[in-house]
């Protein structure tokens, strides 16, 4: 039991990130609604961000602002690099979400629904041409 608890609780950050990642993955795979799929994708990405952030944490570490008095008192800093990386990755994730949402808006205009199965059904009925095509001209 003690061994088990040590496995779970000593490294709980990894368990949380894997759990979140699987929840997000489930959302992407199982949900029909495209908005819910995007939410799943966001949870999936956030799980990885949290992993990076927990990687940077140092026990008893303080905010990484270089200051002589803090160093003299013997404090240690957390690692700021993962934070910076994740700041970039969050921007990427926001951009992805924006593109995905604009695609969903366009699809809603074209097909009048955001359920994946209905969109597939409707798109199969039309010929595979773009919006500017004029067949037979």
């Amino acid at each position: 039991m003690e061994w088990f608890l040590a496995k779970i609780f000593a490294k709980y950050n990894y368990w949380v990130f894997i759990l979140l990642m699987l929840i997000g993955f489930y959302g992407i795979v199982a949900k029909e609604n495209l908005i819910k799929k995007i939410l799943g994708l966001n949870i999936f990405q956030t799980a990885i961000f949290l992993y990076f952030i927990s990687l940077g944490a140092v026990k008893g570490g303080t905010a990484p602002i270089v200051d002589e008095t803090i160093i003299q008192k013997g404090y240690i800093y957390t690692n700021p690099l993962p934070h910076v990386l994740i700041l970039t990755a969050i921007v990427v994730s926001v951009a992805t979400t924006a593109v995905a949402l604009s695609l969903v808006i366009r699809m809603h205009r074209e097909y009048g629904t955001i359920e994946e199965s209905e969109i597939i059904e409707k798109s199969l009925r039309e010929p595979p041409h773009g919006e500017n095509s004029k067949p037979g001209t």
Binding site: L41, A100, E126
Partner: peptide, 15 residues
């Protein structure tokens, strides 16, 4: 950019 069915293709690629 071509719209219609390309939107679905693009969304699949995005995910």
């Amino acid at each position: 950019s071509r719209g219609k069915i390309a939107l679905r293709a693009s969304f699949t690629y995005l995910v």
